[in-house]
Every structure is written in structure tokens, then in C-alpha cells.
Design a binder for these strands. Structure first.
Length: 551
DNA sequence: GCCGGAGGCGCC
DNA sequence: AAAGGGCGCCTCCGGC
């Protein structure tokens, strides 16, 4: 294991360590352009992949595996109910020794201080008396001790460290993106690019239509204005969400819905987005693995996890290459089947289309209804059709429904829940005081209602957490496993990952092989994350030139 | 003028 | 079919 610490002078300290933390061989110092000389190292130890890996990637170093102190610390602290505390090695060691975390230090790449600021030396202590390699080693040994021999936790930590490597590489390599196709889409839907601050032609025309339909001027970008306008024409709505508008019979609705859709494209993924995020035919986002409490990824800038479907046609493989697009179909209900031990639902999970299987099993073949019911169960829907249908599921799959219901009750009590591999959800925040007050004998009706609402919100969060976080566990193991096997395929690049879906860009001749590796990795993840379970977590790799052709 | 929250909507 | 979970990002808007 090669410990690697950036130094204040821009260079690096490197030290080979045994798994027990003992130094092997001499301490080395390297300038950034000398890092390629360390490519043979199989496993790296460093403070934070988000901060430390990009420079190595730029130097041409591929890191097969790592131990990321920050990633591991975040998970370990979370299991102790601590969220948002500093995770850099000095903080880890200080906590281990019962000392206060040194003041003035800044944790980079964590929630409280995004790497955005990138202060020099921020990832480590400014104290020159402390040897950065020793600090790394001490933090590593403390984390190993705290992680103990929990097999599931070890798998989670390894998968999260691998995911962090994948995230950094993915941001660096970028998603193939054809600006010419993107521009053609914008031109077709919005018209020619207008000067800054001017509405594109299509939006201007729709705004005029909306004004004409109301008979007075309205700013369609303002929810306040719109609500007032609809009130004036006899519709008292408390939101202008599109599903609310769809229930209104008024000539302004149709152009307004169209306006909202196109305006969204213009502001979120229009010309300025293209200018800002696409360079050299690639969309470079900054991916943050495990940044969501459930373990899902987040991105900073570019909105890479919200690419609208209409722009997937701009994601095109380079000449001589293909995209292998794979998603884990209906992952969350399958994960629920596994973690709850519900054999009946596990049996359904063998179907390629789980919802169709559900429908045949208890919903008279009505797939749409079965899907609504299952989503309602996982999200905590209580009203309407979805809420009513959960009863049918409860009768047929009592273990699965019991699992999410238990999760909800734990949340309503203020308790913690965990993912299958042991990621903890955050404890309730300051608002829980209001729940406590509202549950006292002498609480007012208003206090009771507030407590019920807050506890209900918390229950829906924990209900969903057990499923969403366990799905994220599976996906991280899938991704990290695939990443390690892709090393044997020349030219294969992981270029996209979105919760339960990934894309590999690969020379055409190797596409079939990559598709097989993706399926193998999914099967391995199923066995490791859900050992002994009969659940199926199939993935469907599709080999295409354009992302839009994958579905 | 700055800033944070709200509203809204894209993705899963 | 109804509006339940998680995010990021944009604009608007009200408070300072």
C-alpha cells in the first residue's frame, strides 16, 4: 500500500506501507510530473480521492484501489450518528486521541466546506511538525480498528473507495457529447441563439400566446404572477406545478405547459450550459460519489445526473467506438425483496419485468397499477390510489411491506435505520424537539398536528432510506467491481453513472466483452451484497452509438 | 445589492 | 393514478 500526501510545495511524499502500517523501504519525494513513476502501486492510501486523485490522473497514473480516509471516515462517523464533522486525517487522529479537532483546519470535499475553495494545504494540517505520512498511517490504523471484522462494512468501504476513484476518473475523461447535435436540438425547439438576456424566439411566442389567452400580461416565469392570473380568471390554485395546471380548463394552460418545458431546457441545458460544460467533445462534470446521505452520488455543476431525455441524442460514441449502456431494471423493489427476506417477492424478481410479474400475481394483470402500488409502498404514499393499493401488497408480500413499515415506524420514533451493508441514516435534527413537545399530554392541537407532520416526514424518509441506501450499496459494489475488471479492456472508459445505470465508452470490437463484464459485475454484486438470497438483480447492457437509442 | 428560502422541474 | 422518497439547478421574491 502506497501512502501519498501532497506537500505545501506542490510535491508529494510517498511511502510504501504494509497493511499493518509499517514502513517498507525509503520515504520518497516526487514532483507532480514524477508521479507516473509510481504507477505500479496496487493500492494507495490518501486523505481524499476528490482532492488527491485528479492531479495523479493528469500525470497519467491509474490507481487500481485506494483507502480514502475521508470516504471511510464519513461512513464510520455516520454509524456513530455523527454527520458533517471534519474527515481529514488530522481530525481522525485527534478524535482517536481524545483531543479536540485542531482549530483553523478545513476539511476539503466534505459537506461543511466544499472543495470549491481548494485552500492550499486544506486537506491536511498546516502544522509542519506533523509528518503527513504518519498522520495518514495513524488515521488508517484507527479506521481499520473501528471497522473491525464486519464483513458487510468492509465490502461497503471497499466499494465506496472504488466508487470515489471511478467518480474522479469519470469527471476527468468526460461523457462523449456532440455540441453540433445539441445545438441542432436547441435550434429546433427554441429557435436561433438569442443575445444574452433575450428570450429565445419560441419562448417569446409562447409568452405572447399566454398573455393573449389571459387578456392581460403575465410573467410565466413567476409562480406568484401566474397564480394571481389564474385567480383572476376563476381558478384558485395553490401551486402552478404542471400536474395542477393539467387539471384546469383554460386556453392559457396549453401554451404555458409548453413554455415551462422549453424554458427549462433553455435555462438548465441551453447554450450557456453547452459553453460552460462541454469541451473537446466531452461533458466534464464533477461527480461526488456517496455524497447523498443514502449513498447515492451527487454532482457539483453541470447537473450531470439530470440530463434531460431529449439531449441523450447528443451523447454519441466516437468513431470506431460504442457506448455500452446498462441499467439495473427496477432495482429498488428487487432490493426490497432481498433485504426483507420476502421469498414471494424474490420469486417475482426473477421476471425481467418485475412490475409485470407483480401485476400477474395480484393486480389482475394491470402493470401500471402494480407499479403505482409498489412505488407507493416504498415512498410512503398514504392517500389516493397508490395508498389504497399498498393494502393489496401488504396482504401478498407481508415481509417486504413489513420491512418498509418497520423502517417508517423507526423514523417516527426518532430512531436510526441502516442500509443492508450498514450505512446509517442521519439522526433527526433540531426539529425533533417540536415532535417531543407535540407528543406531550398538554400539547395544543397545533403542536400535535405539527408533531404528526414532522414525524410522518421522518418516517417516509427512513422508510425510503432502507431501500434507496441498500440499492446504492448494491450499485456501488457493481460499479467498483466493474471498474476493476475494465482495467483489462484497452480503451474502455467508464463515462457515466446515475444511481442504477452506467455507460462504458469502448472500442467497438470490445463492446460485447464489456457487456459481459457488466453482467458479471452485477451478478457478483448480487452475491456479495445479498448472500444467500434468491433475489435477481438483472442488468441489461445495450450496445449503441447514441445514448438515446438505448431505451 | 446580497442572500437564503421557496417554487418548480429535470433525473433516479 | 396521484402528488409519497432522494438530489441539483434555475428563477423569483422577500427580508435585510
Amino acid at each position: 500500500m502506497l501512502a501519498c500526501a501532497p506537500l505545501a510545495d506542490g510535491g508529494y511524499a510517498l511511502q510504501e506501507l504494509t497493511e499493518q502500517g509499517d514502513a517498507v523501504g525509503p520515504r520518497r519525494l516526487a514532483r507532480p510530473d514524477e508521479l507516473a513513476g509510481f504507477s505500479a502501486a496496487d493500492r494507495w492510501l490518501w486523505a481524499c480521492t476528490v482532492d488527491d486523485y485528479p492531479a495523479l490522473i493528469a500525470a497519467g497514473v491509474h490507481v487500481p484501489r485506494c483507502h480514502d480516509i475521508a470516504v471511510v471516515e464519513r461512513i464510520l462517523l455516520g454509524r456513530d450518528g455523527v454527520f458533517g464533522d471534519p474527515t481529514w486525517p488530522g481530525a481522525v487522529v485527534a478524535r482517536a486521541q481524545g483531543r479536540p479537532v485542531p482549530a483553523g483546519s478545513v476539511a476539503v470535499g466534505t459537506d461543511e466546506m466544499p472543495a470549491l475553495f481548494d485552500l492550499p494545504g486544506a486537506a491536511g494540517p498546516p502544522d509542519p511538525a506533523v509528518d503527513p505520512i504518519e498522520l495518514l498511517r495513524d488515521a488508517y490504523l484507527d479506521q481499520r480498528r473501528r471497522a473491525g471484522s464486519d464483513r458487510a462494512l468492509a465490502l461497503l468501504l471497499a466499494a465506496e473507495c472504488g466508487s470515489a476513484l471511478a467518480a474522479a476518473e469519470m469527471g476527468a475523461v468526460g461523457l462523449p457529447w456532440r455540441p453540433d447535435i445539441h445545438l441542432a436540438v436547441l435550434d429546433e425547439l427554441l429557435g436561433p441563439r438569442p443575445p444574452a438576456g433575450v428570450r429565445p424566439r419560441t419562448l417569446a411566442a409562447l409568452a405572447a400566446e399566454i398573455d393573449a389567452a389571459f387578456g392581460f400580461p403575465v410573467n410565466p416565469d413567476s409562480a406568484v404572477d401566474l397564480r394571481g392570473a389564474f385567480r383572476r380568471v376563476g381558478f384558485d390554485i395553490d401551486s402552478t406545478r404542471s400536474w395542477v395546471l393539467k387539471g384546469i380548463d383554460h386556453p392559457a394552460v396549453a401554451p404555458l405547459l409548453q413554455y415551462k418545458e422549453l424554458s427549462r431546457l433553455h435555462t438548465a441545458n441551453g447554450w450557456s450550459w453547452l459553453d460552460q460544460w462541454v469541451t473537446g467533445g466531452r461533458f466534464h462534470a464533477e461527480y461526488l460519489s456517496g455524497a447523498v446521505v443514502s449513498g447515492r452520488w451527487a454532482t457539483r455543476g453541470g447537473g450531470a445526473l439530470q440530463i434531460p431525455r431529449v439531449l441523450r441524442q447528443a451523447v454519441v460514441a466516437q468513431p470506431g467506438h460504442r457506448l455500452v449502456v446498462a441499467d439495473a431494471a427496477q432495482l429498488e423493489p428487487r432490493v426490497l425483496a432481498a433485504i426483507s427476506g420476502d421469498v414471494a417477492l424474490q420469486r417475482i424478481s426473477a421476471d425481467v419485468d418485475l412490475y409485470a410479474g407483480l401485476a400477474a400475481d395480484g393486480f389482475g394483470g394491470d402493470r401500471a397499477t402494480a407499479k403505482v402500488a409498489m412505488l407507493g409502498a416504498m415512498y410512503g404514499q398514504t392517500t389516493g390510489e397508490g395508498g389504497r393499493l399498498v393494502g393489496t401488497l401488504r396482504a401478498r408480500y407481508p415481509l417486504a411491506m413489513g420491512c418498509v413499515d418497520d423502517g417508517a415506524r423507526a423514523g417516527e420514533r426518532g430512531d436510526i435505520v441502516h442500509s443492508v451493508l450498514g450505512r446509517a441514516c442521519p439522526p433527526p435534527g433540531d426539529y425533533w424537539e417540536a415532535v417531543r413537545i407535540g407528543r406531550q399530554q398538554d400539547a395544543t392541537d397545533a403542536e400535535r398536528r405539527r408533531a404528526d407532520r414532522l414525524a410522518g416526514d421522518r418516517g417516509r424518509f427512513t422508510r425510503n432510506f432502507v431501500v434507496q441506501a441498500s440499492a446504492a450499496d448494491w450499485a456501488a459494489v457493481w460499479l467498483a467491481g466493474l471498474r476493476s475488471t475494465l482495467g483489462d479492456v484497452p480503451g474502455a472508459e467508464l463515462v457515466f453513472f446515475q444511481h442504477d445505470e452506467l455507460i462504458v465508452h469502448v472500442p467497438s470490437a470490445a463492446a460485447e466483452r464489456v457487456a459481459a463484464l457488466i453482467e458479471d459485475a452485477a451478478d457478483a454484486a448480487r452475491r456479495m451484497v445479498f448472500p444467500g438470497s434468491a433475489v435477481a438483480t438483472p442488468v441489461r447492457p445495450v450496445i449503441v452509438e447514441r445514448y438515446a437509442d438505448a431505451k
